Simulated scan of single mutants.
Amino acid sequence: MTLVNFRDPAVLADPEGRRVRRGVLHRSAQPFPSDNGPIVEQLRTAGIRTIVDLRGAAEADDVDWAGARADGVEVVAARIQPTGPALEAAMRAMTTDAELGAFYLLMAESAPGAVRLAVEAAARPGGVLLHCAAGKDRTGLLIGLLLHLLGVPAAEIVADYARTTEALPQIFEGLSERNRNALNDYHAGSLVVPRPLLEAPAGAMTAFLELVDTRYGGAEAFLTHCGVDATTVEAFRTKAAASGVTA
């Protein structure tokens, strides 16, 4: 079994190759249940040399990427914990797609060190894979920021994000097998998941990008706020920008 929701976001977000080099960034869900021969081959074929694991410590397992590590791939833990009083309050109150977008910004703001680590890893040589559990929320916001940094129009970033909708049945099946206890709690009524979190609504990414622009003045300013230095931003642009594009 290969990685679910695996793709190069440049294919949909920049189909004409005007702003993003192909093969630089990839995204996916976590491996279900852990990596194996086909997944290792998938990573090798895509030229992936670094994996950025955005899951919280309680979600990750050392065996998840054992095969990739044995194949020489470095795994960087950039933990964005989807919990805490402010995030839990926002989740309880969430009813709209725009509120999911605001939740994304709150997650990123709550973990500036993880955002910095993820961008630093994305600037390394070779292909980079970013993933969380579903490859939708934390992965979506990081990919969104990186594409925004390269000047990809918001509509194209949103289109790539929304494509995860196609993979949601597989994602939920994999998550249910891995997290059966949590799923039982959900069905018992002790865990309430807001409707937007169960989808990949275009409005959520639209709202997230708008908030980054209005509150911080764009992706670069927000990443600077998170501690990403100018050298890292330039290294990422040099690596990821299509030929002739500098911003």
Rank of each mutant, 00 (worst) to 15 (best):
R92T: 14
L147M: 11
Q170G: 08
E166D: 15
T96E: 08
S110P: 01
L145P: 02
E166I: 14
V115T: 07
I80H: 03
E120D: 05
F172Y: 13
T96W: 02
L106W: 03
I157P: 03
A86M: 09
R79I: 11
T165Y: 10
V152G: 08
A102L: 14
F103V: 06
L106G: 05
V158A: 11
G135A: 00
Q170C: 08
L147T: 08
L105E: 03
L141V: 07
L150A: 06
G101A: 03
T95F: 14
A162K: 12
A114P: 12
F103E: 10
L142A: 08
E88R: 12
A133C: 08
L117C: 14
I80G: 03
M107Y: 04
A111G: 07
A93P: 11
P169N: 02
K136D: 01
G126D: 04
P85G: 06
I171D: 00
R124G: 01
A167Q: 13
Y104I: 12
L168E: 10
L147F: 09
V158Y: 11
E120Y: 06
G144S: 00
A111V: 08
E173K: 14
A108H: 00
F103K: 02
R116D: 10
A93F: 12
Q81M: 15
C132E: 00
G113Q: 05
E156H: 15
A133I: 08
L147Q: 00
L149G: 03
P82H: 05
Q81Y: 13
E156S: 15
A114M: 10
A155P: 14
A114D: 01
A108M: 09
V152S: 03
R116T: 12
A89N: 09
F103R: 13
G144C: 02
R92P: 09
A77G: 09
S110H: 11
E109G: 11
A159T: 07
R163M: 15
A108G: 11
V119S: 10
Y161E: 03
A121F: 02
Y161M: 04
A134G: 04
A123F: 03
A159R: 01
A111E: 05
C132M: 11
G151S: 08
V158L: 12
